[in-house]
């Protein structure tokens, strides 16, 4: 029985809040449980059969007062716990300015991560400490769930959708990564290591990684390969929307709906354009579902975002992208379906 785990490190910004919530609710529950336990024991001893304790009916008015008393008290405690711990916590993650955006792809039974400048890793994720991280995660098959106990964080990863998990690692070290949503035979083997390093170590690690094309350059290549340019290139005669500057803007569809062109919108626009045609255009764009895989879509989206002046920036100065680049305020909510 090697090294039994007795505690869990608090390795992310919100870990402290989760532990506080846990032990506060634990405290309240313990007080109530102990009070009930004491009552149970006292009544059992004092009023067991044969003792000469006072018995006989209770006045009914007393009974009603007690009943209403503890009902309101319980309701108040319930509302208090809810208000204290659930109220402000659950707003959707806003894009912090110097966020490091890493694309994670979950696939039966492995985790693939791609850093903004092309560094790739499998079943592991190297992160710089004290840097706001933004994981954009999608699955290639079934539902998985990205779970790091030390961060107190978990987020299901769904196919044909991108889910965002934003956090800031605050402690250097190696931590477990588990898949927490049942995904088939090797669900329990789909684990990995989160390696949190100092920022210089991280930069050094990134430089040492084999530099595959970064996401944007991959997207550009796919844009040509899939013949998107035939209709969307500025010089093309086909009447198709100009994609440069599209990301983050409002788009009006033929059936009158107005949607924000965020990650999910672009994903659907490429995979299933026939589900909602842009107003003023002919529905001639083919479905790319089945043609472009999730990893291709990620790359195409990164390229389209780069066409909109939004450098998919990494949080570090040492990267080529100039820091001063102002990025449009992109409010990404995962559900904005077409």
């Amino acid at each position: 029985m090697t090294g039994m785990r007795l505690s869990l490190p608090e390795a992310s910004g919100n870990a402290r809040l989760v532990d506080t919530a846990f032990f506060t609710v634990f405290g309240i529950a313990a007080v109530i449980f102990v009070a009930l336990f004491i009552l149970l024991v006292v009544f059992s001893i004092r009023y067991r059969r044969g003792t000469r304790a006072r018995r006989g009916p209770l006045p009914s008015l007393l009974r009603r007062e007690i009943e209403i008393g503890w009902t309101t008290a319980t309701t108040f405690v319930a509302i208090f716990i809810f208000w204290w711990f659930v109220g402000g916590f659950t707003l959707p993650p806003r894009a912090a300015p110097n966020q490091l955006e890493i694309h994670v792809v979950a696939k039966q039974w492995m985790w693939k991560a791609e850093h903004p400048d092309g560094a790739r890793e499998i079943d592991a994720l190297h992160l710089p400490v004290n840097t706001p991280i933004r994981l954009v995660m999608t699955s290639e098959d079934v539902i998985h769930s990205f779970f790091v106990p030390a961060f107190r964080l978990k987020q299901d990863v769904l196919p044909a959708r991108s889910e965002v998990l934003a956090f800031t690692p605050t402690r250097i070290g190696d931590f477990h990564l588990f898949c927490a949503e049942f995904c088939g035979t090797q669900h329990s083997r789909m684990t990995g290591d989160i390696v949190v390093m100092t920022q210089p170590d991280y930069a050094g690690w990134v430089r040492r990684q084999p530099h595959g094309d970064n996401l944007v350059r991959q997207g550009e290549a796919l844009f040509a390969k899939f013949g998107c340019g035939a209709c969307h290139a500025p010089e093309s005669q086909v009447h198709a929307p100009k994609l440069a500057g599209l990301y983050g803007t409002r788009v009006t569809l033929a059936d009158g709906r107005r949607l924000t062109a965020d990650d999910a919108y672009l994903r659907n626009a490429i995979l299933h354009p026939r589900d909602g045609t842009v107003a003023g255009y002919a529905p001639i764009m083919p479905d790319y579902a089945g043609v472009a895989g999730p990893a291709d879509i990620d790359a195409l989206i990164a390229y389209l975002k780069s066409q909109s002046g939004l450098k998919s920036q990494s949080g570090l100065k040492s990267q080529s992208s100039p820091k001063s680049q102002s990025s449009p305020k992109s409010q990404s909510s995962p559900q904005a379906d077409r």
Binding site: V18, A21, F22, V25, V86, F89, E181
Partner: peptide
Amino acid sequence: LFLATVPIDIHVTD
């Protein structure tokens, strides 16, 4: 009640 508290449940669900 622990599980109904969203931040706790995010950690302990599954």
